[in-house]
Design a protein around this nucleic acid. Structure first.
Lengths: 93, 93
DNA sequence: TTATTATTTGCATTATTGTGCAAATATACA
DNA sequence: TGTATATTTGCACAATAATGCAAATAATAA
């Protein structure tokens, strides 16, 4: 989980919407459900999810023909807090 | 200080280098000093600093012909921690 | 098998962003 | 005044990234 990749992944409005949507749910949801939060094509949402997944922000579970995504809450929160700590002391890598 | 704008500002390798450079110093430094951390043109560094400033990540103080930049450590750290908390509970706006 | 549904991927296009150079601006000093 | 230094800005171009559509893949059911 690389800091810069995480920030890049979070630097797009649709991906933020997607993340918010996923965050607001208790259980994982499939691509179609996620796509409800933004107006772009479903294929675009699929790509955004892939970017979030590559950044380690979300994880995917395939069940049957559906893929369920959920947020890696602890890991993302930990990385943000670590970055916050680094900025407060001296170096923020 | 908008979350998405902050993430956008942090989503570039040179801006991360610049931020790291600024973070590693106790006192503010001018554009020329900041520019030492990356190989791009000084004018590019100036633009990157403007982006970081617009995002609220750094502040600028003009003294004479120089402009001294410093990181808004507390504010940035607070925003990152707030985002971390939002992600951990439910909604991450 | 075929059909249906969910998701991903190839491709072309558009939009955005980063970059370097030169010129402009701002400040200080001789 | 003119000159030197620090920074920003205009502009063109290159590099990245987002998007939509159609086709491909994967899994399930008739």
């Amino acid at each position: 989980m690389k800091t810069e990749q995480v920030f890049k992944a979070l630097a797009d409005p649709n991906r933020m919407k997607i993340l918010n949507n996923l965050c607001s749910r208790d259980c994982a949801c499939n691509v179609g459900e996620v796509a409800g939060c933004c107006t772009v094509d479903l294929s675009v949402v699929s790509r955004h999810l892939a970017i979030l997944k590559n950044a380690g922000i979300v994880s995917a579970d395939k069940r049957g023909k559906e893929v369920f995504y959920h947020v890696n809450r602890k890991e993302v929160a930990a990385l943000l807090r670590q970055t916050a700590a680094n900025i407060e002391k001296s170096c923020c890598s």
